[in-house]
C-alpha cells in the first residue's frame, strides 16, 4: 500500500463525495436538459389539429395523424405476434420443463436475440418479409420485424413474473385436482399478469421508439395506411426525416414531444404495474 500520497480517509471521503455529487449532477442535468429542450420547443406545437390532421408537403405543413396511426398499427401487430410467443416460451420454461439442455438452448436464443442491433433486424426483415415473402414495405413487414425484436423482452419479463408466483399457489391448485394447464391459466398467469403486462408495455415503448428496423421494412410513405399491406411512416421515422433533412424544425420538435410524452407515459404505466406487482408478490 502506497500511503505517502494518500489523503486522510476522512478528507478523501469528502473529496470523493464532492466529486460524485458533481458527476451525478452532470449526468442528471444532461438528461433533464434533453427532456426540457424537447418539451419546451415541442409543447407549443401541440394542438388537437396537430394530432388529427395528416402531414402535407412532406411534413412541412399539417399534423402527424397518419404517423400516429401507423405507429399504433405497427406496435399492435408486433405485440399480437410477440406476446403469445413470449408468454408461451416463459410458461414452457418455468412450468413445463426442468430439462437443462432444452432450457439452456431456449435461454441462449432469447439472450442472443436481445443483443442483436436493430439495424440487423432491419436488414433481415427487408430480405425476408419485404423481398422473399413479398409483403413489400408494409405495416405487416414492419410489425413482424418489431415482433422479433421485442420477443426477448417479453420472454424475460414474463419468465420473471411467472417465477415469482409463490409455489404455494401452484400446490394449492394441484391439491384441488387441477391439471398443469388449468393451474397455469387459472392460477399462475392471473397472478403474473401485472409482471407480464410490464414486459408488454416496455415492448410498446421500444416499438414506438424504433427507427432503424422500421425504415427498411415499413417504408416511409406518408399516407394514412389503408391496410396492413400498405407502407407507412411511424412517428420516429417521421421525426428522423423531418429533423435530418431540415424540412421543418417546429414540426420535428412537435413530433418529438409527442414521442417523448408517449414514451414517458408508457414508462410511468410500467412503473405503476411493477409497483402493483411487487406489492402483490412480496407481502410485507
Amino acid at each position: 500500500m502506497k500511503k505517502h500520497f494518500r489523503l486522510k480517509p476522512r478528507a478523501e471521503q469528502k473529496v470523493i463525495q464532492i466529486l460524485l455529487y458533481m458527476m451525478t449532477s452532470v449526468a442528471i442535468l444532461v438528461l433533464i436538459f434533453i427532456l426540457a429542450v424537447i418539451l419546451k420547443n415541442g409543447l407549443p406545437q401541440l394542438s388537437l389539429e396537430f394530432l388529427t390532421t395528416n402531414p402535407a408537403h412532406m411534413g412541412r405543413e399539417g399534423g402527424i395523424f397518419s404517423t400516429i396511426v401507423t405507429t399504433i398499427y405497427l406496435t399492435f401487430i408486433a405485440l399480437l405476434v410477440a406476446t403469445p410467443l413470449g408468454v408461451g416460451t416463459a410458461i414452457y420454461l418455468t412450468e413445463y420443463t426442468s430439462e437443462r439442455v432444452v432450457t439452456r438452448i431456449i435461454r441462449f436464443g432469447a439472450e442472443c436475440l436481445a443483443g442483436i442491433p436493430s439495424i440487423i433486424f432491419g436488414l433481415f426483415g427487408f430480405i425476408l418479409f419485404v423481398n422473399k415473402l413479398k409483403f413489400g414495405w408494409s405495416i405487416l413487414s414492419g410489425g413482424l420485424t418489431l415482433a422479433f425484436m421485442v420477443l426477448p423482452t417479453i420472454i424475460r419479463t414474463s419468465e420473471e413474473a411467472i417465477k415469482s408466483v409463490p409455489a404455494a399457489y401452484r400446490l394449492a391448485s394441484y391439491s384441488l385436482g387441477s391439471t398443469r394447464w388449468q393451474t397455469v391459466t387459472k392460477v399462475v398467469l392471473p397472478s403474473a399478469a401485472p409482471g407480464i403486462a410490464t414486459g408488454v408495455v416496455l415492448s410498446i415503448g421500444r416499438s414506438i421508439g424504433e427507427t432503424a428496423a422500421v425504415i427498411f421494412t415499413a417504408g416511409s410513405a406518408l399516407h394514412l395506411p389503408s391496410s396492413i399491406f400498405s407502407s407507412g411512416r411511424t412517428m420516429s421515422v417521421h421525426f428522423y426525416i423531418l429533423a435530418r433533412e431540415g424540412i421543418s424544425m417546429p414540426k420535428a420538435y412537435g413530433t418529438a414531444a409527442v414521442l417523448v410524452i408517449a414514451i414517458l407515459m408508457i414508462n410511468i404505466i410500467t412503473y405503476y404495474l411493477m409497483g402493483k406487482y411487487i406489492s402483490r408478490t412480496s407481502p410485507e
Binding site: G88, V102, F124, I155, R180
Partner: peptide
Amino acid sequence: PKANDRLIRISLLVVALSAISILAIITIFI
C-alpha cells in the same frame, strides 16, 4: 386432461423454440 396436457406441452415447446429459431433464421439470412 392427460392427452390435452401432452398436446399443450408440445405446442408450448414449439412456441418456446421460436426465439432460437428466429435467431437461427436471422443468422442464416445475414
